[in-house]
């Protein structure tokens, strides 16, 4: 899980062009939107594409999206659970 979180942080920085950010600056439990990284709705779409492109996973509903994209850790948990099934 910790390796996946580190990898996700690096992928998020590249996907969202957060070039002033380093993986260690991202708190994996902090909300990604509004607070935390202060991401916006376009970033949410970009993260959805990231999950599909890199991990073959789709978010099916807005409600699921809110939970999955809450934080880096919740994204990692979603990937871990769905990769096992």
């Amino acid at each position: 899980m910790e390796q996946l979180i580190q990898k996700l942080k690096e992928e998020i920085i590249v996907a969202l062009n957060l070039s002033e950010m380093k993986p260690e600056n991202i708190d994996e439990k902090a909300p990604l939107f509004v607070d935390g990284l202060g991401l916006d709705s376009i970033d949410a779409l970009e993260l959805t594409v990231l999950l599909e492109k890199k991990y073959g996973l789709k978010i099916n509903t807005a409600e699921e999206g809110k939970k999955v994209l809450y934080s880096v850790r919740s994204m990692a948990e979603f990937i871990t659970v769905n990769n096992k099934s």
């Binding site: 376009i42 970033d43 594409v49």
Partner: peptide, 9 residues
């Protein structure tokens, strides 16, 4: 086929 939303906008 992975169009990037942040490019498209």
């Amino acid at each position: 086929y992975f169009p990037s939303p942040s490019v498209f906008v």
